[in-house]
């Protein structure tokens, strides 16, 4: 790969790569601060100190990461599906009022309206078209369920560790699913995602960010809903 081509790939994928890099830095930061916080707590309860390596293998670390992942994927899943059917007048995050629903085959360029450069599954019709037509939301849903599942298993192990260290009986996974700890971890993440999404949808009506595709053009009227109608 030439230097020229590397530069081009980096530029064309700058958004995904920058966020991927920031994710890795944040995760490393979470691991470092997480082990420090864990050891601080151990000190106060007379437990043994653990290394970073052991912390990375702990259920406590796994549960902390997974509980945040699940809420992010829930947020995107809900947003992707909700915006098919719900609109917000004047928001760039929304279709126009009256455009609710999944659109005609012609609008969506599927089946016989597919073009030569359309994705293969959009051209094929049948079940493949049905699946591919919802693949973005479905992948988010699968990742949400998988990460919520991971949170439940890791959170359960972490919870039982605490139970044992305070000489209480461990609980079963089914018990943990109805335990306050599981729902506290879950809902504290959901509420923040839902607030952020709701406020983004309505803030985008009246506020602008020059140059961002998440915003209308600065001079666009408040009642204009979709950014591409200008």
């Amino acid at each position: 790969m030439t230097a020229e081509r590397v530069r081009r790939v980096l530029r064309e994928n700058g958004l995904s790569l920058a966020f991927g890099a920031m994710f890795l830095v944040s995760l490393a930061g979470q691991a470092l601060s997480g082990v420090a916080a864990f050891n601080e707590q151990q000190l106060s309860t007379g437990g043994e100190q653990i290394s970073l390596g052991r912390y990375l293998l702990s259920s406590s670390f796994a549960a902390d990461v997974a509980e945040n992942w699940q809420s992010e994927y829930l947020q995107f899943f809900l947003y992707i599906f909700a915006t098919v059917w719900l609109v917000q007048h004047g928001s760039t995050e929304s279709k126009q009022v009256g455009e609710e629903g999944d659109g005609s085959d012609k609008e969506q360029r599927v089946g016989r309206y597919a073009q030569p450069d359309s994705p293969r599954w959009a051209r094929l019709g049948g079940w493949r078209e049905v699946v591919y037509s919802r693949s973005l939301g479905l992948v988010m849903l699968v990742l949400f369920i998988a990460s919520w599942g991971a949170q439940s298993v890791a959170g359960w192990a972490a919870y039982n560790n605490d139970q044992l260290s305070t000489r209480q009986d461990p609980v079963t996974w089914a018990d943990y699913l109805v335990a306050p700890d599981f729902w506290n971890r879950t809902l504290q993440n959901w509420q923040s995602e839902l607030l952020a999404v709701g406020s983004m949808a309505i803030f985008a009506v009246f506020l602008r960010q020059r140059g961002s595709p998440e915003s209308k053009r600065v001079g666009a009227p408040h009642q204009e809903t979709s950014s591409d109608t200008s």
């Binding site: 064309e12 990461v65 998988a146 991971a150 298993v153 972490a158």
Partner: peptide
């Protein structure tokens, strides 16, 4: 397009490895 596809697959692989790892960690501690 190939660079873009590599980023796409990279994200998917990263997420799947993470999910398998966290689930396995939880199970290993039982």
């Amino acid at each position: 397009v190939n660079g873009t596809k590599a980023v796409f697959i990279g994200y998917l692989v990263l997420i799947v490895i993470g999910l398998v790892y966290f689930t396995a960690l939880g199970m290993a501690h039982q």
